[in-house]
C-alpha cells in the first residue's frame, strides 16, 4: 500500500439506519492532490469527517480501515487517534464565516494549538503565525492577529484558515469545498492560493468539491462518489481522456470544459443515474444495509 492516506472499504451508516458510505476505498499519495468529486449529499464531507474523527454522533463506522502513514487509525484508542490527527492532519473548512471562534482573537486561534498540542514556545508560534499570514497575502498580519473574526471579510477569513491549516506543516490537509461559501470573485484567488501553498509545502491534499472543472485545475488524481459509493478512482490524465464509468463520463460531458473553472454540474442523463443506482442497490444487497 503506497500513499499517505489509504481508506479501505470504509462503511459508515446512520445508527440504526441505512448506509451513508458504502465500502469506500481511496488513496492520497504523499505530497499529491487527490480530488473527491460528487454531487451534494453524496457523502464527501463524511469521508473527511471519518478520517478526522469528527463524524456526527448519529453516524458510525461499521467496517473498513483508515490508514494514515502506515497506521490504521481505527485500531488506535480515541485519545491516540486524536493526537495523531492533531499532529499530522489539518482541515480547511467549507464555511470561513462559521469556522472561526467569534469570541477569540485571530492570533490565538492560529498559535494556541502549536503551543498546546505541538509544544512550541509562544514566541515561536507567534513568529510562525505572522510568517504564514504574510504567505497567504494578509496585509498587516500583526494587526490582523489582534482582530476578531467579525471584523474580517469571508475571503480574509478563509486565507487565515488556510494559514492556520499549514502552520504546523501537516502531512495531510483535507479541504472540504473550501471555496463554495465565498464570493465568485474571490473563489479563484483562494483556489490558486491553496494550490500554491500545497505545492510549496509538499503537503498531501484531499480536495473535496462538487466541481469537476476545479478538479481538473489542481488535482493529480481523483475519486468520483455517488450515494456514498466510489464510482471511479483514477489518475487525472487518464480520467479526462478515458473515463471508465458511464457516470464519470456523464459528469465530464456535463462540465463545460475545464477552461471554464466556474462551470457547474449539468444534469446527468436518467439512464446513467439508473445504472449507478442499480450498482448501489447491488452493493447493499451483497453487504446488507449496514
Amino acid at each position: 500500500m503506497s500513499g499517505y492516506l489509504n481508506i479501505r472499504n470504509l462503511s459508515v451508516s446512520l445508527r440504526g439506519g441505512g448506509p451513508i458510505l458504502r465500502s469506500v476505498t481511496l488513496d492520497v499519495a504523499a505530497g499529491q492532490v487527490h480530488g473527491l468529486v460528487g454531487e451534494s449529499g453524496a457523502g464527501k464531507s463524511m469521508i473527511g469527517k471519518a478520517v478526522l474523527g469528527t463524524l456526527p454522533r448519529a453516524l458510525q463506522i461499521t467496517a473498513g480501515e483508515i490508514w494514515l502513514d502506515g497506521q490504521d487509525l481505527l485500531k488506535l484508542s480515541p485519545g491516540q487517534r486524536r493526537h495523531r490527527i492533531g499532529a499530522t492532519t489539518a482541515l480547511i473548512p467549507q464555511d470561513p464565516l462559521t469556522a472561526l471562534n467569534p469570541s477569540r482573537r485571530i492570533g490565538p486561534q492560529i498559535t494556541r494549538r502549536l503551543v498546546d498540542i505541538l509544544g512550541w514556545t509562544k514566541a515561536a508560534a507567534e513568529a510562525r503565525a505572522l510568517e504564514l499570514l504574510a504567505e497567504v497575502d494578509i496585509p498587516d498580519p500583526r494587526r490582523v492577529m489582534r482582530t476578531y473574526p467579525h471584523e474580517l471579510s469571508g475571503g480574509m477569513r478563509q486565507r487565515i484558515l488556510i494559514a492556520s491549516a499549514f502552520a504546523a506543516e501537516p502531512k495531510l490537509i483535507i479541504a472540504d469545498e473550501p471555496t463554495t461559501a465565498l464570493d465568485v470573485t474571490v473563489q479563484k484567488q483562494i483556489l490558486r492560493l491553496i494550490a500554491e501553498m500545497q505545492a510549496r509545502h509538499g503537503t498531501a491534499l484531499l480536495f473535496v468539491t462538487h466541481d469537476l472543472g476545479v478538479v481538473s485545475k489542481v488535482c493529480d488524481s481523483l475519486s468520483v462518489l455517488y450515494a456514498g459509493k466510489i464510482v471511479e478512482n483514477a489518475r487525472m490524465r487518464r480520467f479526462f481522456m478515458h473515463p471508465i464509468h458511464p457516470y464519470s463520463a456523464a459528469l465530464l460531458a456535463a462540465t463545460p470544459t475545464y477552461t471554464n473553472p466556474q462551470g457547474s454540474l449539468m444534469p446527468v442523463p436518467e439512464s446513467v443515474i439508473e445504472t449507478v443506482e442499480q450498482e448501489v442497490t447491488a452493493h447493499d444487497r451483497r453487504w446488507g444495509r449496514r
Partner: peptide
C-alpha cells in the same frame, strides 16, 4: 455542533 468547535477537535484537543 458549530464548525469552529469541530475544527478545534481536529487540532487534537481533548
Amino acid at each position: 455542533h458549530l464548525d469552529y468547535v469541530t475544527l478545534a477537535r481536529t487540532k487534537g484537543y481533548a
